[in-house]
Design a protein around this nucleic acid. Sequence first.
DNA 1: GCGTTATTAAACCATATGGTTTATCAAGAT
DNA 2: ATCTTGATAAACCATATGGTTTAATAACGC
Lengths: 120, 120
Amino acid sequence: MVYQDPAGLDRLFHALSDPTRRAMLQALTDDEQKIGDLAKPFAMSFAAASKHVRVLEGAGLVSRRIEGRAHICRIEPAPFAAIDQWLSFYARFWGGRLDTLEALLRADDIPQASTREDKT
Amino acid sequence: MVYQDPAGLDRLFHALSDPTRRAMLQALTDDEQKIGDLAKPFAMSFAAASKHVRVLEGAGLVSRRIEGRAHICRIEPAPFAAIDQWLSFYARFWGGRLDTLEALLRADDIPQASTREDKT
DNA sequence: GCGTTATTAAACCATATGGTTTATCAAGAT
DNA sequence: ATCTTGATAAACCATATGGTTTAATAACGC
């Protein structure tokens, strides 16, 4: 249950660890974008930006559709769900909204109630 | 208020992009651990594992308290909240936390495709 | 003190990463 | 056909990353 491919998470978190790529993602929340449009805001070569897009694609965060000479990118929702799922495991530590229900969910798996309580 | 240091997210996501470090984090959900204990499960030198801990520390995911000659590590909740906050921006269009939770809740009964996407 | 245990520091190495520049290729426009 | 546009590919470079090994440091047991 709730299995997550480790290499997938590697690629996913790595893709998100770069500010250029996160900014591109954010730009894509507005609408689909040509790679050229994605590249424009950044002070780097087109080729460099294109490589960033490829990393996002490799992580599943972005899909590409070719229309004539333009490559049109779209944000893909699934990886966000994967992150959320990963995060939910830790929800009990920081009091995320899932906290209560998550505790319910894993009630069977937990051998004994944790006495840990983080406040920091 | 909802501002997130970009460099912080860089370090955070980068720290999470390594399977060894994620495994260490998970080990820390059980209880605090000495660095030596954190290192043991991995087929790498103690020094290498120690460096991984330092990366986790640098990302704020782990704090360290020195007790005699042992360095005792503890998971820190704040960065998880930061990720959740980052994620929440995208929840707007991919369905968000509650959908994921519902899918999890139904996972036992309904074998339908949930928010899963892994198996790449 | 002396040896052992827990950890960091330093030097080093191979590979990955993020960037560049210079081709190269395909598709529109004229 | 030719020129321009949108994008990739390839070669290259500097630095970062993840790992090693060998000191070095500090605390505990004897």
